[in-house]
Amino acid sequence: MSSKLLVLLLIFSLNLRGCLVLASDPDPLQDFCIPNPLFGSIKTAHLSILPCKNSDEATTNDFVFSGLKSAGNFTDTGLATIPVNPTVFPGLNTLGMSFVRADLKVDGINPPHFHPRATEIAYVVQGRIYAGFVDSGNRVFARVIEQGEVMVFPRGLVHFLMNVGKTPATIFGSLNSQNPGNQKIPSAVFGSGINEELLQKAFGLSLKQIGTMKRRFNPKT
């Protein structure tokens, strides 16, 4: 049974007073769509559309990306990431995927975060990484993965990385959306402007402690 037929059957089985919402990257309607730099992007309420240039103008270079040969700039958590999406790699546009190179210094971490629109598969290029995710029942699935191993992080679930080896580590992550989003938990909680009284009650922290956390995750405050 085709996926389209399954969707139709599901729709007809719903109570007419209900509603059904489906969300994913749309299927491509052509072989490829190389963004036309002359038009930039079209902003809508939910996404940016990258208009295609004439397919006759596409070149091999549009489908090759050379920006992952070395690590990016490291943060104070010992993490360096290079996200790759259609804005830097035109050949990815409309193909429903993106990827990232993540490097971690010894003891470096990628703090808990999630991608609202994508599942991620992480491949360890080198090093030993403590990696895992938390499901909606607050169960942790985590272990140390080493060079050559792969771990999957389901869409929308909080996940994390920590270098537990004695040498720097490198991971390549592949995501099944060209715009997966990246919501970092510490920044979302303490760097977004949530009412301090609510944070006090939620975490049992003093106003001074909350102020410290806000300065750390939102330097503008």
Rank of each mutant, 00 (worst) to 15 (best):
V100R: 05
H115S: 12
H115E: 14
V84R: 02
T60V: 06
L29T: 15
N93M: 05
K69G: 01
A80P: 04
I109E: 11
P112N: 14
P37E: 06
S41N: 14
N93P: 09
C33N: 12
A102M: 15
G18E: 13
L104A: 11
N110I: 14
T75R: 01
K105L: 15
R101T: 13
M97T: 15
G91C: 05
S70Q: 11
K53R: 04
V64R: 01
P83Y: 09
P90I: 07
L104C: 12
S24G: 10
P86V: 10
S48A: 00
P90M: 06
P86G: 07
H113P: 15
F65K: 00
F89I: 05
V84G: 00
D31L: 13
A71S: 10
T44H: 00
D31Q: 13
N61K: 04
L47I: 08
A45K: 05
N110V: 15
V84E: 04
T59R: 10
S48Y: 01
S66T: 09
R17V: 02
G108W: 03
N110P: 10
H115N: 15
N85V: 13
A80M: 07
P37N: 08
S66D: 10
L92Y: 01
G96Y: 03
G91K: 03
T87Y: 03
L104H: 12
G72T: 09
S48W: 03
D31T: 14
F114W: 14
D27F: 12
L92I: 11
H113T: 15
S24C: 10
K53D: 00
L104M: 11
P28N: 02
L95F: 04
L29D: 15
R101F: 14
V64W: 01
P111C: 09
L68K: 10
D31C: 08
S24H: 14
P26M: 04
N93T: 08
P111I: 14
G91M: 04
D62P: 06
N54Q: 01
G67E: 04
I34S: 09
M97E: 04
T59P: 00
P83S: 06
C19M: 04
P116M: 07
N61Y: 00
H115K: 11
L92T: 06
F114D: 12
